[in-house]
Simulated scan of single mutants.
Amino acid sequence: MKRGQLYVAIVLLVLGMMLAVQFRTTKDIQQNAPISRAQELTARLKDVTEERDNLLIEVSDLRKKLEQTGRKGGAGKAISDELDKARMVAGLTPVEGPGVEVVLNDSPKKLEPGEDPNLYILHEEDLLKVVNELRAGGAEAISINGQRLLANSEIRCAGTTILVNTKKIVPPITILATGDPKALQSSLEIKGGILETMRFWGLQADVQQKQKVEIPAYDGPVVFQYSKSVKEGD
C-alpha cells in the first residue's frame, strides 16, 4: 500500500472511532442526564463534531491529491511516450521494422580504351536519388552503410570519396529503410526510375523486401547554431 493510501486509511479509521464516540455521546444526552452532565456531554459532542468535520475535510483533500497524483502519472507517461516518439523521428534512437535492403556497387565492366570511368562508378547523386525515391515511397527511417540519415544529413562527394554524415563510405553500399516493403520496392523499381537507369550504365543495384531491418541511431553531434525553437504566441 502506498504511503498516501495508508494515511487515508488511518484517517478513515480515526474518523470511524470518532463517529462511534459521537453516537454514544448523543445517546447519553438523550437519556435525561443531570444538567451539568448534559452540558459537559454537549460540549464534548461539539468538540467531537468539529474534529469529525476537520477529518472529513482532510480525507477529501487527500483523495483529491491521490487523484491528481494518478493523473500526473498518466500525464507523465504520455509525455514520456511523446519524447520517445520525437527522438525516434529525429533519428536519435535505433529502430526496426519491415522494409527493404538496397545494395549498390560499381560496375564490374572492364573499361574500353577512351571510356570515362566515372560512368561506371557510384556517385553521391545516385545515393541521393535512391534516398529521395525511398522517402517518396514512405520510408520512415533510412541508413547508408550504418549511417542514420537525419533531415540535415549530407551526402556529398569529396574527390573520389562519398561522405555520409562526414563519414567515408565505399562500395558495396547497403541502404536500409523501414516502411511498407512493397511500396518502397515499387518506388525504386518504377520503369525509367533510378535503379533502371543505374543498371543501364552497368552499375549493380539490387533491392529486396525484408520482414525486419534494423537501423541504428544517429551517433554524431546535433548542433543548431543559428536556429532556435519558437514558443507559441511569439
Rank of each mutant, 00 (worst) to 15 (best):
V48C: 07
G74H: 07
L13S: 10
P34N: 04
A38H: 04
L15Y: 00
V48I: 15
A43I: 15
K27Q: 11
K72E: 06
A43T: 08
L55G: 05
L56C: 07
G74F: 08
V8Y: 03
D61Y: 00
A43Y: 08
V8W: 03
T25F: 03
L56T: 11
V21A: 15
Q39C: 10
A75Q: 09
E67D: 09
V11M: 10
A75I: 10
L12E: 01
T49A: 08
E50S: 09
I57T: 10
G4E: 10
L13T: 12
D53G: 07
D47S: 11
I79R: 05
I29G: 01
A43V: 15
N32L: 11
T69Y: 01
F23M: 11
Q39F: 04
V59G: 00
L41T: 05
R37M: 12
G73P: 01
A43Q: 13
A43S: 14
S60H: 05
T49S: 14
N32P: 04
T69P: 07
L13I: 14
T42P: 01
L13H: 00
D47R: 14
L66A: 02
K65Q: 05
E67S: 01
A38L: 12
A20I: 06
D28N: 13
A20G: 01
S60C: 09
V59Y: 01
R24W: 12
E58C: 10
Y7H: 07
Q68H: 08
D28W: 09
I35R: 12
S80D: 09
V59R: 01
T25D: 02
T69L: 12
Q30Y: 08
Q39L: 14
Q31T: 10
R44L: 15
L56S: 07
L56F: 02
L13W: 06
E40W: 09
K64P: 02
S80E: 10
Q22Y: 06
I79M: 12
A78N: 06
A20R: 00
E50V: 15
A38K: 07
Q22I: 10
L55Y: 02
K77E: 04
T69K: 08
G74E: 09
Q31I: 14
E51I: 06
G74Y: 07
D61E: 08
D28Y: 07
A78R: 02
Q31R: 12
N32Y: 00
V59E: 08
Q22T: 09
R37I: 14
